[in-house]
Write a protein that binds this DNA or RNA. Sequence first.
DNA 1: CATCATCCGTGATGACCGTCACAGATCGAT
DNA 2: ATCGATCTGTGACGGTCATCACGGATGATG
Lengths: 229, 229
Amino acid sequence: MAQIDDLLENSFSLGGLAPDLAAGLEALARPMKLKAGTILFEAGDPGNGCYAVLEGSLRVSLLSAEGDEQLLAVLGPGQLVGEMALLDGQPRSATVTALKPARLAFFDKQAFDRFAEDNPEIYRHMLRIVGGRLRLANDVLAARSFLPLPGRVAKTLLLLADSFGKEVEKGRTLIHYKLSQADIANMAGAARENVSRVLNEWKRAGTISQISGYYCIEKMEKLEDAASM
Amino acid sequence: MAQIDDLLENSFSLGGLAPDLAAGLEALARPMKLKAGTILFEAGDPGNGCYAVLEGSLRVSLLSAEGDEQLLAVLGPGQLVGEMALLDGQPRSATVTALKPARLAFFDKQAFDRFAEDNPEIYRHMLRIVGGRLRLANDVLAARSFLPLPGRVAKTLLLLADSFGKEVEKGRTLIHYKLSQADIANMAGAARENVSRVLNEWKRAGTISQISGYYCIEKMEKLEDAASM
DNA sequence: CATCATCCGTGATGACCGTCACAGATCGAT
DNA sequence: ATCGATCTGTGACGGTCATCACGGATGATG
């Protein structure tokens, strides 16, 4: 359980809690595993708690009746998911799946509520997380509204770089997550074929590159420029 | 100040607070007026507090560099706006304007923070509000991703009916807010001309009508059907 | 290493919808 | 009541981008 503790104390999303709170939360957490390719929950399901990612990554997406996907986010270790269910009793608003095996910590709604009643400061923390999500959502919507296809792809890469980027060298940012063109297309809201064309153009121009399958941003400015509204 | 009190206790957004909390908030509120056509704040401004609408209505929107607008919401009396600034210290993420004169109650960030420290239950309340906004944002993004133009217009009308609809008669819902086609277009993410074509088609089919300028939904199912994904 | 599944590149085609253009309608203001 | 300003209806045109089609690359798996 030490690892959960570590994450709760150190991660971006869960960090900043007073030690006694983190300890209290740790006691609530129920560790669990998720196999590759399985669904954690689907939009419309009743929400009975939330999860923290300990290891692996989860994809959060909206699905249309025809099976089209709008990828909202890919969450790595330290991120919370499904937290909305703790607030209102509403059903889950998105679908969450694991591509590769993942380890999670589950927080039961009832237990969490009881804990929060005694430690209401925890809400302040949740507010910051949910607020951040809202900002992100607005940002994505703005991109969708104002930017043409290449701009949306640029925006997508920049967002991914925020979550998974490692500045491997001065000015070069590696996106340390295995992405298919289809993934990028589903985030940017575009057809895979056109994403392919855009990415290749940028590769030829030296704006981006691929290092053993991982995308690498070579000229950040070019992308920022394409993504600016 | 009795009116503020009324709103805080009765409104959808602010209701449900324990009476002593509502009273405490009332003490914090600073009444203010906004003239027609003025900007309350713009995206990028530092956020120093939040506002509750007492009278009139505000439009929340994102603006592109070229002046295009993405209307996120129209808020009527009882709604909170600018609450994100209370959570993190981030700048405002959207622009809020008043078309017609409005009366507001302003909550200063510092004062609010101090109050919330003593009454942390208030955060639970904020969470429900922000969570609702996030759900809405995802919903709008899904519509943008999956629905063709007519579907997005239908969705927009249904959303507006949620905020401003009065069931004037069995099955007929009047949207009690003055909307131009341009407004609807800016919410739906479409060109005004095409919105015009869609609305007229629906008028001819008897799906909607206009009563002294206000739109009225005659056949809700038709719209729901068009907006379903 | 052979086979199958997925992923990727690229052309051709055309639909959807944004833009332009403009006339008629509506509404406030003087 | 009149004028200007804004809003609305409708046609024509063209661009962006989704879709289809398919061959080649890459990578998992027995």
